[in-house]
Write a protein that binds this DNA or RNA. Structure first.
Length: 622
DNA sequence: GCGATCAGCT
DNA sequence: CACAGCTGATCGC
């Protein structure tokens, strides 16, 4: 659940995904997607009143989100105050202080988030830097590199802060099978079942939330059928979904719901109540989509698990895994990372407790780099169009790309400030890479931006947190890890405050809509380990071997090479870099601290793109 | 009666 | 496993 308080420190006059309390005073609102936990306060009478007296305050979201929002009568009053924006079309918005008339311009770009229909991330570009608010997202490894608007020319834009969906930002959730693999597993199970007879039916036990439509459309396509759902109303302007769902109960795949659906199942009835017309009993299996995750060292496990005589659980995730998030972050390399979700396994009170205990605990994200990796080659897209930057868009149905999900890694540690200050090491002279003089401060913060328990969000606290950030002086481990950046360090950096952005609305550029149902298998190796076969084995072997430590998380990166040996572990790379840069970190009990000479040697090898391979007993994938 | 919050459940 | 969100109990206005 998102515990983001609604505001970003760079642009505190706008509110995102929260509409209560302080957010009532916002000059603009943004809704990333239509899930209830991101709509707190949105139907509040106070907000409604405010809108009636305002000429400038609007809610910005995607077309699909607007459609889903207004589908609920409780939010109908937003109709005239909601401005839908096209994906990937930078749009300038004026933030107006209606009391003083002061105006601030900001450019916002919606990026597909892959979480549910209409879900987007918001990229803000303005005089306080570029800020990315991810909302909730499920992006695959490499997706960020395919997003045109995250780039400026051939480079990744400088991102000051990422407000991050950190739902699975925990090494326990190291890997979640890809959408494609999960879908294949579910389709195989369903295909085997419904092909047996017309009385063999499947019930998809989906929660009441947008996000499963991807499943419906793909299964509908695969089996040339429609999926039975309770209502079509919300999809009435989304033909791509509408054509795969139906309220006709005479189909073999159901995703209908009923408050007592489990009871219905016991009585061999579907939640819609349907039984076979001629009295032949239905043969029903239920499939419950649920997140399955796999630790770094887990042996591959089935994406479909049999949980009873006629019940199954199938892997399905709305959120990116730890590896996917790490890939995302290491590609963008933001200065600050602010998790919008309290880490799983820690309640809000626990987080608060930690803060108090260590006086000023904060999350520190490392790598401490600002050098941008070269933009990877992305497939060109001839589908260019001129962006519309008007707020008076009308539409008949929503854009295709919003309905779909993107079809398509690195290193983090969490450290308390206490740990950090105790262990801070002097920078190593002479190893500093070329850094442009106008670079941003480069300490990478991983700060807590969530609302604290019963305490008002305190801007000063954040300021202090930033002030305590250890400045980045020494070489960055990732500079060595991605040697190409060494020769590429004079990249363009952030422009001066309030200068005209390259992504200003007046600039019509080619559109780069990501391939949504891409047929290319970009990461086949990530997937092939997951079995599609069904098993009745209990699932207790689920890997949970990585536990969140109070102060420090380090994890091994098990990159397997073709000859079966393991690449140098992530943990060791981290240790190595920290030794020579900002601060030291304690080694895990089973590892030994690398020596300086060894590290230099490693750096040289990495910088020259040599493979650095360590043999570790019993660490390889089996 | 309404809204907010929380426990419980799935 | 969590997620997203429902239901119902309780409390305050």
């Amino acid at each position: 659940m998102s515990s983001f308080a609604g505001r970003m420190k760079e642009y505190p006059t706008i509110s995102l995904d929260r509409f209560d309390r302080e957010n009532l005073h916002a000059q603009a609102y943004f809704l990333s997607h239509c899930h209830k936990d991101h709509m707190k306060g949105l139907k509040g009478p106070l907000l409604k009143r405010k809108l009636q007296f305002s000429r400038t305050v609007r809610l910005y979201c995607s077309f699909v989100t607007k459609e889903l929002l207004l589908n609920n009568p409780k939010y109908a009053f937003w109709e005239e105050y909601t401005v839908p924006l096209e994906l990937e079309s930078p749009t300038q918005i004026s933030l107006v202080d209606e009391a003083s008339g002061e105006k601030q311009e900001i450019v916002v770009t919606l990026l597909p988030a892959g979480h549910c229909p209409g879900s987007v991330m918001f990229l803000f570009e303005g005089c306080h830097g570029n800020v990315l608010y991810t909302g909730d997202f499920r992006l695959a490894v490499g997706d960020a590199s395919r997003m045109e608007q995250l780039h400026s020319g051939s480079r990744v834009k400088d991102i000051q802060s990422v407000y991050l969906d950190s739902t699975f930002y925990d090494p326990r959730f190291y890997q979640i099978p890809s959408r494609e693999v999960c879908l294949r597993g579910i389709a195989e199970l369903i295909g085997n079942w419904i092909s047996q007879s017309r009385y063999h039916v499947v019930w998809l036990n989906c929660k009441a939330a947008y996000g499963y439509e991807y499943l419906f459309t793909n299964l509908g396509e695969e089996f040339s059928t429609q999926v039975h759902v309770n209502s079509l109303n919300m999809f009435k302007k989304m033909p791509e979904i509408l054509s795969y769902v139906t309220t006709d109960r005479r189909c073999q795949i159901h995703a209908c719901r009923h408050p007592k659906d489990e009871e219905f199942l016991q009585g061999n009835r579907l939640p819609c109540g349907s039984t076979a017309a001629d009295g032949t009993p239905l043969r029903i299996i239920s499939i419950k989509p649920s997140t399955m995750w796999f630790g770094e060292r887990t042996k591959k496990t089935n994406v479909v698990i049999k949980t009873g005589a006629s019940s199954y659980r199938a892997c399905f995730s709305f959120h990116s895994s730890y590896s996917e998030i790490k890939d995302f972050l290491s590609y963008l390399q933001p200065v600050n990372i602010l998790p919008s979700v309290v880490p799983i396994g820690r309640s809000l009170t626990e987080v608060t407790h930690i803060r108090k205990r260590s006086d000023e605990t904060m999350f520190i994200y490392k790598p401490l780099g600002v050098l941008k990796r070269s933009r990877v080659q992305r497939p060109s897209n001839s589908n260019t169009h001129t962006r519309a930057h008007t707020h008076t868009n009308t539409h008949t149905h929503v854009g295709r790309s919003e309905l779909h999900f993107l079809s398509k890694p690195f290193f983090l540690l969490l450290v308390t400030l206490e740990e950090l200050t105790e262990r801070v090491a002097p920078p190593v002279a002479g190893e500093e890479p070329q850094v442009a003089s106008d670079m941003q401060p480069v300490g990478l913060n991983f700060m807590d931006c969530t609302e604290s328990n019963g305490e008002e969000e305190d801007d000063n606290e954040e300021e202090e947190g930033q002030g305590d950030t250890v400045k980045n002086k020494g070489p960055k481990w990732e500079d060595f890890f991605t040697p190409e950046v060494l020769s590429d360090s004079q990249n363009s950096q952030s422009q001066s405050c309030c200068s005209v952005r390259s992504t200003s609305p007046s600039r019509a550029t080619g559109s780069q809509t990501p391939e949504l149902f891409s047929e290319e298998e970009e990461t086949p190796d990530n997937n092939k380990g997951f079995s599609l076969s069904l098993s009745a084995s209990n699932h207790s072997s689920q890997n949970l071997d990585s536990h969140l430590d109070d102060t420090l998380i380090l994890h091994q990166d098990q990159n397997q090479t073709s000859d079966g040996v393991t690449l140098q572990s992530e943990q060791e790379q981290l240790s190595a870099s920290q030794t020579s840069s900002d601060f030291d970190i304690p080694s895990t009990p089973e590892s030994k601290a690398p020596q300086t000479a060894d590290l230099l040697h490693l750096y040289r090898k990495l910088a020259s793109r040599e493979e650095v391979v360590l043999r570790e007993e019993g660490q390889g994938f089996s």
